[in-house]
Simulated assay, not measured.
Amino acid sequence: MTADDPAGGGDAAGRAVVVDRPGVHRLVRREVPVPGPGEVLVRVAAAGICLSDREVLDGHRAAGYVRYPVTPGHEWAGTVLAVGDGVDPALVGRRTVAEGFRACGACERCRCGETSLCLGGYAETGFTEPGAFADHLVVPARLLHPLPDDADLRAAALLEPAAVVAAAVRAGRPRPAERIAVVGAGTLGLLAVQLLAATSPAELAVIDPRAARADAALRFGATRSLGPDGADALHGRYDLVVETAGAPSTAASSCLLARRGGRVVLTGMFTAGATGIDPVHLSVSQLEVRSVFGASSAAWSDAVRAFTLGLLDPAPLVTHEFPLERFGDAVALVGGGDPATGKVLLRP
């Protein structure tokens, strides 16, 4: 298959979900896109729906981080169907995922390897560039992270949030035999438990008000689970606290869980009005606080490597799967508050 015959004689057209403006979406049929120089065409196998995708549909995403009309979908896995000029043709047929941030690769931060801090302006698949809620997707080949030939693409669709968690683990620098707490047992939290369990902690606690979600963490390597009320007795206990919930109070409460001189990594997406971190506690306790937004290329490599080695298995987090035609039903589940709802996938 080549860029001149991207569908390989199969699909003459494809479908895509398009959000024209907040509250308005439609499923369209379109010609299969042709990859340009340096690009690849991917057949999407599965795409995860994130709360940020619902924000795009509802119109709650900050204006600088979305461009309407847009096809959402930044969590995905698929197979390369065709390549553009200048791209290795051996990629055709490879299972793959790809970074979402369209980092420039030339600015100071990119040159230092901090591609998620690119100074070239924000651009991301599924928000400002066409995403994976479609049969086909075109992305720059330089962003690909090829997978083994037998990779489970349904599970691999969760490698984007796994890369965010890998960025948090890099920032947190866990060491063997440390006491670690994860605040939040959603998709990010349960992925964090898997990666942190591989660092041989002395204790790995998960804190979530939803008992069923917190208890699920025990199956992924946590040593204890508890609700926020029970966590009050653990203030000052943990060497590392990884916050994944983005709830109004969890940035502040995560800092209280950390020991003096401990480390806190914030990965949840907070909204205006969240409780601030007490600067007196921060100063007196000499805490190291980091935040994570997206993932660098290095963090992506960590996540893909852990997935390939079997240290990370996102498949059990998937609870619902829908065809593209039922995008509206699928996105309504996300953020609905039902503890039985885990990761929701679209399967083109």
Rank of each mutant, 00 (worst) to 15 (best):
H235R: 15
V165F: 04
S291V: 11
S200E: 14
A205P: 04
A123H: 12
F322V: 03
T275A: 15
D338F: 11
G227L: 10
P37G: 09
A141T: 10
A211S: 14
S253H: 12
D85H: 13
D152T: 13
P140I: 01
P72I: 01
R326A: 14
A205C: 11
V87A: 04
C118I: 11
H235P: 00
I49M: 06
G120K: 11
R263P: 02
A13R: 14
R54P: 05
P201C: 10
A134F: 02
A332W: 06
G84L: 06
V80H: 01
G9K: 10
L345D: 00
Y238G: 04
L234M: 14
F220K: 04
L191M: 13
A272C: 06
E124R: 13
H136E: 08
V331L: 13
M269H: 11
V292Q: 00
G113V: 05
L57N: 02
L81T: 07
G86S: 03
V139Y: 00
G78E: 01
H281E: 12
S116P: 05
R61Y: 07
H320Y: 05
V139P: 00
R219S: 15
P148I: 05
G261E: 09
G9H: 09
A166S: 12
P176W: 07
E288N: 12
T341R: 05
G8L: 02
P33S: 00
T2H: 08
A330W: 00
L333F: 06
A211T: 15
